[in-house]
């Protein structure tokens, strides 16, 4: 299991069926965007309906807010030289060790 240092998601890079899972960080949620506004990282535009700054709730409904350190493990293409490449490494990952089994056999 890996933890993405950019968005704190956890995931298994190898699916149970033997295929590779390519993690990509999600856009900011309303809660995450609101925290960025409070931290002064971004100023939301004036809401034409209310003539005051948009709320984070409205902002994420109207446009997508991506992380500056977004990780995207998808490949840039399918040419031979694209194997093993990432679209964006972000802040990297932390190895959490083996994934707990999803099916456990209980002894008789």
């Amino acid at each position: 299991m890996l933890r993405c240092k950019s968005c704190l998601a956890t995931y298994d890079p190898l699916q149970a069926d033997g295929t590779t899972y390519f993690h990509a960080c999600p856009p900011l949620s309303a809660a995450e965007l609101a925290a960025k506004v409070v931290a002064g990282k971004i100023v939301l535009p004036i809401d034409p309906d209310t003539l005051v700054a948009e709320t984070a709730e409205k902002a994420v409904q109207r446009r997508v807010y991506e992380r500056a350190n977004k990780r995207d493990e998808n490949l840039p293409g399918t040419k031979p030289g694209d194997a093993g490449q990432l679209k964006a490494a972000g802040d990297g990952t932390t190895d959490l060790g083996p994934k707990p089994p999803s099916v456990v056999i209980v002894p008789k």
Partner: peptide, 8 residues
């Protein structure tokens, strides 16, 4: 992925 708390 399992997202972090408060994330999508």
């Amino acid at each position: 992925s399992t997202p972090g708390g408060g994330a999508e």
